[in-house]
């Protein structure tokens, strides 16, 4: 029986909206796959493209950046900068050969626990279809 591939996904969740969205999903007993490891960041603008590349190098199969909706960022413009960086990062990683579908950005507010669980399930599904990511992964 072939063991179904369990992806390894890193989610950078902005502390004010998406992380509380995750808590919301948890308290209202919503299920989302356990393959996702959440890293709390002060704002989605804190996510440096080097972190994304480091995640793939250390063995992640997919990276998801969750931030506040444009306009209601706690620091006013964090997610706008994050958006610009993300737009460049996906295209550049795709350009050097890492599939762009392995990086995704979502706006999830504190009230959208449902959306958080849905996005996580969706993303975990697409990554397990894509299979493990050996590209740019470090050799042991």
């Amino acid at each position: 029986m072939s063991v179904k591939f369990k992806p390894n996904i890193i989610c950078f969740a902005c502390n004010w909206c998406s992380y509380t969205g995750a808590d919301m999903a948890g308290t209202s007993r919503m299920k989302y796959p356990a393959t996702i490891k959440i890293i709390r960041v002060p704002c989605s603008g804190r996510v440096n493209p080097t972190f994304i590349m480091k995640a793939y190098q250390k063995g992640a199969d997919g990276v998801l950046i969750a931030g506040c909706h444009p306009g209601d960022c706690h620091y006013n413009s964090g997610n706008y900068f994050a958006k610009r960086r993300f737009l460049l990062a996906t295209r550049f990683m795709n350009y050097i050969g890492i599939d762009a579908k392995r990086l995704r950005m979502e706006w999830i507010s504190a009230a959208e626990g449902v959306k958080f669980a849905r996005v996580m399930a969706e993303f975990s599904e697409t990554i397990s279809e894509l299979g493990p990511n050996w590209r740019a992964r470090e050799e042991v």
Partner: peptide, 18 residues
């Protein structure tokens, strides 16, 4: 100087001058 380190180096260098 492993392959993954080379990708990291060139990714960081290119992005820092983006």
């Amino acid at each position: 100087v492993a392959t993954s380190e080379q990708f990291m180096f060139h990714f960081i260098r290119a992005f820092h001058v983006a």
